[in-house]
Design a protein around this nucleic acid. Structure first.
Lengths: 138, 138
DNA sequence: CATAAACTCTATAAAATTTATAGGGATTAT
DNA sequence: ATAATCCCTATAAATTTTATAGAGTTTATG
């Protein structure tokens, strides 16, 4: 399951995607719309900005706005950014690899081999779904 | 990512699958082979037995053994049993459904719609991989 | 029949992670 | 000058995961 962080990020991105005609959107507006703690959401939007998905404007009249095309924001990226690895095991993660302590020999581990396949197929799914697909369903 | 519980369960099932010629296998043997805490593994094997994957024999000379064909143990079942939902959100879980608190109207939620698709495609993957596939890779 | 070897079961403790809060800073429009 | 707004880091609270403990129960065996 996705963490609340990632779920809230998706809601925020969706909200921002639906309000692209406005220059900026307030954290508060998104928080109220979805009953999310203002401060928690603040941290999430900050991460999304640092990762290059959002722009922001400080001061009075400021707020956040989307700086990427929704079709260029795949689910895989958002999930990885906020939740970490998409792979089911550290030993098959492309971006967060770590050996499994309980595994004596990764090369001849059947679990490892199967999980590489699962990872590749899962990635195909999540790379092919973007914020645009979410917006299309609203 | 899978929890350690599920990961250990997969190791245990694999071990039991590789030792089907023996009548029973000791918890201790599996625990030692993979450096897993004996007591933690004990709880996991108990769950697998209660769920109908393993049989056990008490007392001296006892132990655990596989009572299903490896091809009839899909990853989806093991993951669900020990880690819970495969769906990425509670609002699209087939087996553990719960509405999302922050979602005003599930029916017109684009995230919900996309996550249903992700769930279905993910399930296809995990239902088509079984313990047999793991054993084939050892 | 006594003993030791195993699994059974439930409770609890420890550790790690996630979720939430707090508060002072910096910037900007008016 | 002021109020509105994002920025940043630290910490607290809650939850979940991981691990441990210990008293049952069953069974093989000498």
């Amino acid at each position: 399951m996705l963490s609340k962080k990632t779920k809230y990020a998706l809601h925020a991105l969706t909200y921002l995607g639906k309000h692209r005609e406005h220059k900026t959107v307030l954290i508060q507006d998104i928080a109220e719309e979805h009953n999310i703690s203002h401060k928690f959401l603040e941290n999430i939007l900050l991460e999304l900005r640092k990762a290059g998905y959002l722009g922001s404007k400080k001061g009075k009249g400021g707020g956040y706005y989307l700086i990427k095309e929704p079709k260029d924001i795949p689910l895989s990226r958002i999930i990885r950014l906020l939740d970490g690895p998409i792979a089911l095991l550290p030993c098959v993660s492309l971006n967060y690899y770590e050996p499994c302590a309980e595994c004596k020999n990764e090369v001849q581990c059947g679990i490892n081999k199967v999980m590489i396949q699962v990872r590749d197929e899962t990635l195909k799914i999540l790379e092919n779904k973007s914020l645009q697909d979410i917006l299309d369903g609203e």
